[in-house]
């Protein structure tokens, strides 16, 4: 028996919008810790990891660990039927091949339930160890989105370099080149507007902009984004989900042939 009641149902809607273009099918895992997902894109270049902690739900009942395979496009279709202010409850029964999404309007005058077929997904689960990163950049998520979008109109890949001068995003394409440098800036009105660069060592890595642009679909989930870089590791682009957890995207770098 599984019953998860999320008062801020819009969070789940936003999570689906952030993941459904990157991943087609995924197993949602439910345990005492929370509601989570780990999935790779079809080319195994990027990975998404989601955690919504059990404490963030108004009601969280999960009698035993359960994994539910869902088509994210179909799940998104159902969640789009929920209002932005609706409370969403996810219900499942042991051994059932369906999951139910219940939507309640804030004043309880409209209650809907949508039953979706589950699927068997044979997915590979990866162990991601805690890592020391050479540089961690925290910046407004809208700024990161703007940079990825702007650069993708010039080139296909971006070089992200962190030095003591700041973080530089560079691209080149048929029409020319572009460089955007963001310097640390803590003197802002709100903490989420700050750009904070923690650098242990200078680092420079190349990534496909197509994936980074896809990650920025998570921008509505958080005012700020954290980009963690290490020369031997995939970049981690993390959006914190207020009081609940996070959505993290991992992207493998491109290297010189």
């Amino acid at each position: 028996m599984l019953e998860l009641r999320l008062v801020q149902g819009s969070l789940l809607k936003k999570v689906l919008e952030a993941t459904k273009d990157l991943v087609t099918d995924a197993n949602f895992d439910c345990s005492a810790t929370g509601f989570s997902l780990q999935a790779m894109d079809s080319s195994h270049v990027a990975l998404v990891a989601l955690l919504l902690r059990s404490e963030g739900f108004e009601h969280y009942r999960c009698d035993r660990n359960i994994s539910m395979g869902m088509n994210l496009n179909n799940m998104s279709k159902m969640l789009k039927c929920a209002g932005n202010d609706d409370i969403i409850t996810i219900k499942g029964d042991d051994g059932s091949d369906t999951v139910t999404f219940m939507f309640e309007s804030p004043n309880q005058d409209k209650i809907s339930d949508f039953e979706m077929k589950l699927m068997d997904i044979d997915s590979e689960h990866l162990g991601i160890p805690e890592a020391e990163y050479h540089a961690i950049v925290k910046m407004p998520s809208s700024e990161f989105q703007r940079i990825c979008k702007d650069l993708s109109s010039i080139g296909d890949t971006v070089v992200i370099s962190v030095t003591k001068e700041g973080v530089k995003f560079s691209t080149r394409g048929d029409i020319g080149t572009a460089n955007i440098v963001c310097r640390q800036n803590k003197t802002v009105d709100k903490p989420e507007e700050a750009t904070i660069i923690e650098m242990n060592e200078p680092v420079s890595l190349t990534f496909a902009l197509r994936y980074l642009n896809s990650f920025t679909k998570a921008t509505p989930l958080s005012e700020s984004v954290t980009v963690s870089l290490s020369s031997e590791l995939p970049v981690v682009v993390e959006y914190k989900i207020a009081d609940m957890g996070y959505i993290r995207f991992y992207l493998a770098p491109k290297i010189e042939d």
């Binding site: 790779m40 195994h44 270049v45 990866l126 160890p129 890949t157 190349t206 493998a252």
Partner: peptide, 14 residues
């Protein structure tokens, strides 16, 4: 030219 690495080259299956 550059080669795109795969995420599975970095993290192990559990």
């Amino acid at each position: 030219s550059r080669v795109q690495l795969s995420i599975t080259e970095f993290y192990r299956s559990t």
